[in-house]
Design a protein around this nucleic acid. Sequence first.
DNA 1: CCATGTATAATGGTTGAACCATTGACAAAA
DNA 2: TTTTGTCAATGGTTCAACCATTATACATGG
Lengths: 247, 247
Amino acid sequence: MFAPIETQRAADAIIEQIRGQVAEGALVPGDRLPPERELAQTFGVSRNTVREALRSLENTGLLTLKKGAAGGAFIANDVAPAIVSGFQDLFAFGVIGPEHLAEARLLVATTSARLACERASDADLAELAACVDDAVAAGAAGDMAARSEANLRFHRLLAEASGNPILAVLTDAITGINRGFADAAGSPPNRQILPSRKRLMACLLARDAEGAAREIAEQVKAVERFYMKELGRERRPVQKPARKGAG
Amino acid sequence: MFAPIETQRAADAIIEQIRGQVAEGALVPGDRLPPERELAQTFGVSRNTVREALRSLENTGLLTLKKGAAGGAFIANDVAPAIVSGFQDLFAFGVIGPEHLAEARLLVATTSARLACERASDADLAELAACVDDAVAAGAAGDMAARSEANLRFHRLLAEASGNPILAVLTDAITGINRGFADAAGSPPNRQILPSRKRLMACLLARDAEGAAREIAEQVKAVERFYMKELGRERRPVQKPARKGAG
DNA sequence: CCATGTATAATGGTTGAACCATTGACAAAA
DNA sequence: TTTTGTCAATGGTTCAACCATTATACATGG
């Protein structure tokens, strides 16, 4: 008969309104919101409350706050970092384990490779090739950090070449978590990676989707094995724990 | 020679510290942070600054703020909603299009089905079966909203049964965006969905991974076609636009 | 003894005013 | 023309106060 009362915080209501305007397309990337003091008047709240809302939206990547004379709150569409840190949080909490990560990485990488075979433009392929060259050069120069960075970038480029931004975001998320492992364990030697990359590039150029998927799957698994060995950490296959209902 | 100066905002530094404690495992879900007033003293900043940090973390799902005597800031691990809304933002900005969504949905659903065949517990299968029954009952009762909800829940349960939480989160994200379509177009009739569900359940019980994947793929595609027809919206296959480098 | 109500204290939610720091634009001076 | 100074706009932060909500302890009445 009667429903429980739920009051909404002022800042949340502001967040909702701004999100709504974005969803409707009334606010597009690059647009600038009125100054905080003006927004406070418009919404009929204090400036602190407005700030809480703006800061939260900035934190999720929806806004960029710039100080100074021509500053203000600008609409950005750089929300990928929020998704990435969301996955990182899930990992930190143990909701996602290394085994889930490995499985997802394999899935995303093979799918990216398959789709990239169908859709990669010449420019994409050139970028991928250049990235491999960078890794070679960095390895030759002994710059391990740069080499590792190039190897991670390769996955990102491959995902972009797939034409599906969702895969690119997921690749970022997975890489973001895996970077911790890479920092701790170092990267596998180039002699383990580079031949695979060469073969993969050949598959991409030949538009051989299954070959490309197989190739990157092998390589991802090899890197997994390397981490496992280096860290002595057990990255066992997914094993479902007992669940709420029952086994 | 000299590097540009970058000052970090106080609130961001606080966010970093709290995130760090969570990542280290020093803070686990359920833990309670000191009151805002105390944190302000500890960090040597004003209470408003502390609040900005706490509010941002609450907004990402890392914290839950409870008011009242035994209230405070509690560590939560409910970050999935943040990931979901992140994807919704990407969709609102047009970074992700319906065609990307359809592709991802197909991928996630088929993968979930395959893995669920290997790993689903009896309890999982029972829940899935019960969910199908719910959809039947809701359909018979003419409660379209409940039926639609049950059908979406089926995907969620299937992803959970896969044993990989990443798939569950992605399912939530995709569902979150798709819900908009479902609200606008209504759901496909049960006669289109239910036979497929029955066949899928049979595959799951028989641990027939390929059959299950094929079955849900067909069904997802059928739903896509339904939306396309109902909304007159063109959900065309992924077609890469001209890119930065060149075509 | 138990149920009910009531005061109290802890805590987040909000306010308003003030000041600082940064930034860009424009004017003034060299 | 180039440099330098000034100024106004804007976010960043602080402080002090008060309100609203909640759990708990305590008193009150049956």
